[in-house]
Design a protein around this nucleic acid. Sequence first.
DNA 1: TATAAATAGGATAATTTTATCCGAATAAAA
DNA 2: TTTTATTCGGATAAAATTATCCTATTTATA
Lengths: 144, 144
Amino acid sequence: MFSKACEYGIKASIFIAFNSYEGKRVSLKAIAKEINSPEAFTAKILQDLVKNDVINSVKGAYGGFEIEKLNISKIKLSKIVNALDGDAIYSGCGLGLHKCDENHPCPVHDKFKSIREELKSMLENTNLEELALDVKSGISFLKV
Amino acid sequence: MFSKACEYGIKASIFIAFNSYEGKRVSLKAIAKEINSPEAFTAKILQDLVKNDVINSVKGAYGGFEIEKLNISKIKLSKIVNALDGDAIYSGCGLGLHKCDENHPCPVHDKFKSIREELKSMLENTNLEELALDVKSGISFLKV
DNA sequence: TATAAATAGGATAATTTTATCCGAATAAAA
DNA sequence: TTTTATTCGGATAAAATTATCCTATTTATA
């Protein structure tokens, strides 16, 4: 469904979010450990997320990654997915046709329609805050 | 969503299906041309589909690929997807956790639940016949 | 029986994705 | 001001996916 980069990016964002909630900045090392991801690869992904204004970074000692508290509830999953994987999962053709729409549909266009719409609206309506709170309260998990 | 191999595999199966419907066996060359895919790569995919009993092959002159007429309506999309991509899209965790279920869910487990269920049931309930008939009647398309 | 038209399958190459390494830049604190 | 803990960013490597090439095998037909 998502690329590995995107999976790591979503998990990292959630971890950063719930720490930022408590005013804590987190380091790459801490993130990689928490979400069980390769450190150097995760660094690249975090750089992408910084460039795409999903998270902020602070260089130097006592630096790390954080998200402005007020933004946590405003950042939607779609923003993270878009930054790392683009919009192909919910906008591209399921069978890879370059042109695929109501007038020139691929054989599974209609079958996929509601699934893609549901996926899109889920991504656009799910924000980091709710995901972070669930992890914080032990309802959901970032690893294993 | 699907791998390139799977996209080609689905399109090839549809093309073979609607030709088999008319008693016509189709060659690799004809398939690759019709679905606009690289020939040699498509050959590998067709071999996989043969091994997984999705399609039949006939070697030698006047050989090619076909599907038994009576089976066309019995072959579900899920069988093709499973043969080429496995069941990860609708069975694996959206964030790649090894363990992810009701008791130990990833942060998006619930959000994804209905989407994955819908996807799964769509794949399990869509058969080659309906897809092939739509292409044959010009309602849907295999390329461009 | 020879020929031609196919699929089968092994080897290899190209591309993309995932991952690692290392030095540069930055900034807090000793 | 030096040390130390960080992120940044370029170069590279490893692995997976996508793609190509070539030969062997098969089989219908001339």
